[in-house]
Design a protein around this nucleic acid. Structure first.
Lengths: 219, 219
DNA sequence: AAATATTTTTAGACTTGTCTAAAAATTATA
DNA sequence: TATAATTTTTAGACAAGTCTAAAAATATTT
């Protein structure tokens, strides 16, 4: 139905739209898609002709309901495949993204539904991001940043802001994985380092860069 | 590494090469790939430059060892994905081919190996075709056609010659699926119809068109 | 408000893979 | 073996998606 490229553009624009609530400009798309602004202009014109988005020269783009639907379906496929790769095939959470980027473009509605059922209708992917339902509805997480917790507060690690393999590997190395209960002991006023304690009573110090990229469910 | 199109050409040429043991001509490839002879000529030149096959104008093509390796890897991926779709997701055997045609082009050696392990290192796909190993070795089946059995002979349904969805659905409808023990009762000298008996003592008549497209392991 | 800087678009070109129509080579037939 | 029929290749064009370089529009600074 839609090409790999079209789906990638729609997904990128959708994600930008979630962050900023205003028309998405050409350069922002170019950065996400890893392409040049001129290419974006070309592509955006084509997507506009296909009624997938509204485009006004020099004013940016906005997805139509159809475009948003396709984008969300692509996100759904991506996150289901990530879940498959992690839970069924045993890939670590830092390795699933790149492969899912390919798998998300496989065309078959039946495949998506059967995969969903096979995985037990998961609500979240291996990074804690919510998986859109068949109907396109996304249950938004109400997780908060670990950096927002005060001394004595507890939370369960439930997601990440930064999805880079390097960051994910770093967390993994320190057993900071989804589901882990974490308690804030002390936040240094001097250098912002956060001392935390895990379930097994082990303690470690986390940099601000780390705590502001971990999402927790407050306990 | 190689594009969808390149892999498809190599796979098609490989399969033709298995059937005929002589250089593969342009029209044969065009028929399998569902394209025009002129397109094949163009593509074959490019594959030749990439050392994937040997091409002599007007004389046909022959895969190089590298080309054969890529072709077999593609077949391996195709058959592993078919197995996944059938055994894990519950697709019927007539529905797996089209989706596997897409999945076979996903790029990740690790994915293939992990999928293989997840499936328990299967030896055959849902149609009874052997799955090439990691090393590219294919254990050839020594199945025979059901049409070669004589009255009184028994065999286990182990594969099919015709892979069309229509034929596969037809077999399914009559419970003629892989693993079924089948006994030939009588072959009509008049109209070639074959009366057979299944494990559950049920009997049915099979046309020549059907029996010459079923492969059995002789018992 | 004019000058400067930035962003976006246009124009033209390139790549991959495809096509049609015509030319060239091969094979089959008389 | 000359002629006809078939197969294959070439030539030129097209679509999708990308690029560079230059032009146009918008935003920022003075």
């Amino acid at each position: 139905m839609y090409s790999f490229t079209e789906e990638n553009y729609l997904k990128a624009i959708y994600k930008l739209q979630e962050q900023l609530d205003e028309p998405i400009n050409t350069n922002a798309i170019a950065t996400v898609i890893q392409t040049k602004a001129a290419s974006v202009t070309d592509m955006v014109k084509k997507l506009s002709e296909k009624k997938l988005l509204k485009y006004e020269k020099y004013r940016g783009v906005e997805l139509t309901p159809l475009g948003k639907k396709v984008a969300i379906e692509t996100v759904r496929k991506h996150r289901l495949w990530e879940t498959f790769l992690h839970h069924k095939l045993g890939f670590t959470w830092d390795a699933v993204h790149d492969i899912a980027e390919q798998l998300e473009h496989i065309q078959s509605a039946e495949l998506v539904d059967k995969l969903d059922a096979f995985l037990g209708f998961p609500s979240h992917d291996p990074h804690g991001d919510p998986i859109p339902g068949r109907n396109g509805v996304i249950k938004q997480n109400n997780f908060i940043l670990l950096s927002e917790l005060k001394s004595g507060d507890k939370g369960v690690i439930s997601g990440v802001v930064n999805h880079s393999p390097l960051f994910l590997q770093h967390l993994q190395k320190h057993s900071l994985v989804l589901g882990k209960l974490i308690k804030v002991l002390e936040i240094s006023e001097f250098d912002q380092l956060v001392r935390v304690e895990l379930e097994d009573k082990s303690r470690l110090q986390l940099s601000h860069e780390v705590v502001r990229n971990i999402l927790v469910k407050s306990k």
